[in-house]
Design a protein around this nucleic acid. Structure first.
Lengths: 258, 258
DNA sequence: CGACCTATCCCCCGATTGGGGGAATGGCCG
DNA sequence: CGGCCATTCCCCCAATCGGGGGATAGGTCG
């Protein structure tokens, strides 16, 4: 099975790579093997964030025109591919985006801009490690070529392991994650957190749980200390991000306020 | 390429499945095809959540002894496989766990307990969608059999798409796609919103944008009115929910506080 | 048993938010 | 030109949050 040999070789090489250049060399080889033309291994940080350059990985071999277009567009959050990465559990073809997210005019326009730069389709692998950056590994195809669907499982596997190698090389797992490991919350802290995330005041939460306002205050303060954050907004965002609470918890009951 | 045909067939079937039983049937077929014996498709639910039992998916075909052992061990958080799911961007073999996380005695003991129940090794695919849930799809091998490494990319692909199918069947992602005319925000409102989502106060945001505290206040009040919400927490959750802002916007710059 | 954690309640006080009011500037569109 | 909107600034005040302090009761674990 030659395809698997390629995958195996990439994974072994990636696990041994000591810097990004070595990894990108391997990745370029894999891109060719799997019938793609370009690759983008990126962390989804805001490009105008102060330390984006040092913190974020941005290895992109898209055509120059497309890279310039991406750079010019400041609102990273409108890119349909990046939005889909946050909404999908599995990898996806760009041509399937309308099945994953709503394609409003702005998003369609951004996708068309990529097409105009000589891209026919792409395949993006979401790589989300709770508590770290969001990331993705995209493989793109130049105009006139067709996706080899048989290659997609291999491409997805390679994409994940490429990211794993980046994490190892950058020691992201050590520096970012370990210190801010998902804190354990008690049942009562969780109760208060969910209700606080719904935007309710300490007083209101106290009514709903049948306890005093001070106790609610205490639970939320403790939760904040566990997360090492200062504000209730930060607490909610962090808890949502690492799935301590979910959008279903927060927005579900919204329609039937007590 | 017969292996790919199997994968393709599973993905197509999974995308069409209308209930969990149908999906689990497909999954059982895939498990055999890829040379495994057992499968576990699970949500890593927060045990504090009141409706954990009804919300969480727990499809497990492990040997009875192992399932009993898992049930008896109430501290789900100590399971090394579940911990590794939160620490790894890629799928992993259970025999590789020591390379991913620290194996303290407690964790080693839990893994050994699985071995004692007739499992030789396993392969776990993490499935993380920010804000939704942590999940994983594990394939396990009974004692005396060896992992077919060539099958791993296919197994990983199948694991992801199995979860994607669960999301579709359970309509987990649907609420996200429901767009009640996402309010348009102006550039300045967006700027303030991102910084507010980072937990900064009006005063701090004013410093960063070089405008007065009252103006920031005004922008955020207007944004809240557009979203028809009363609190800043609700505003941030809703804006995250429909991708007006992203976790990358909010958590990315957090590492480099101004 | 004592140490430790959890859950509960109470006090205080400064900082921040929420929600009103009004007003000036400049750009865009019909 | 006259609306309409975005952006900016200002005042006020009640409600809420953030962060201290301390206290009691119950459970677990060594």
């Amino acid at each position: 099975m030659p395809l698997f040999d390629d995958v195996e070789q990439f994974v072994k090489g990636a696990n041994r790579a000591t810097d990004i250049n070595e990894l990108s060399g391997l990745l370029n080889g894999a891109v060719e093997t799997f019938g793609f033309d370009h690759v983008a291994l990126v962390h989804h940080v805001n490009l105008h964030a102060p330390d984006a350059a040092t913190q974020a990985l941005q290895y992109i071999t898209y055509p120059d025109a497309l890279r310039a277009e991406m750079k010019a567009r400041r609102q990273l959050g409108d890119d349909p591919v990046l939005i889909a990465v946050q909404r999908s559990a599995s990898a996806f073809l760009w041509s399937d985006l309308p099945q994953i997210i709503d394609m409003n005019p702005r998003r369609t326009e951004i996708l068309n801009a990529a097409m105009a730069c000589g891209i026919s389709d792409g395949f993006t692998v979401p790589v989300n490690v709770p508590g770290e950056f969001l990331g993705s590994c995209s493989f793109a195809l130049r105009a006139g070529r067709e996706v080899k669907r048989a290659m997609l499982p291999a491409a997805q596997y390679v994409g994940c392991f490429a990211f794993e190698a980046v994490r190892r090389i950058r020691q992201l797992g050590d520096t970012i994650r370990v210190k801010e490991a998902k804190p354990a919350l008690t049942t009562r802290q969780y109760d208060c957190l969910v209700l606080a995330a719904q935007g309710r005041s300490d007083w209101h939460i106290a009514q709903l749980l049948g306890i005093s306002r001070e106790t609610v205050h205490q639970h939320i303060e403790t939760a904040k200390r566990r997360y090492q954050v200062a504000s209730r907004t930060q607490l909610v965002v962090r808890a949502l991000f690492d799935s301590q609470i979910t959008f279903a918890d927060v927005l579900g009951p919204q329609l039937s306020p007590d």
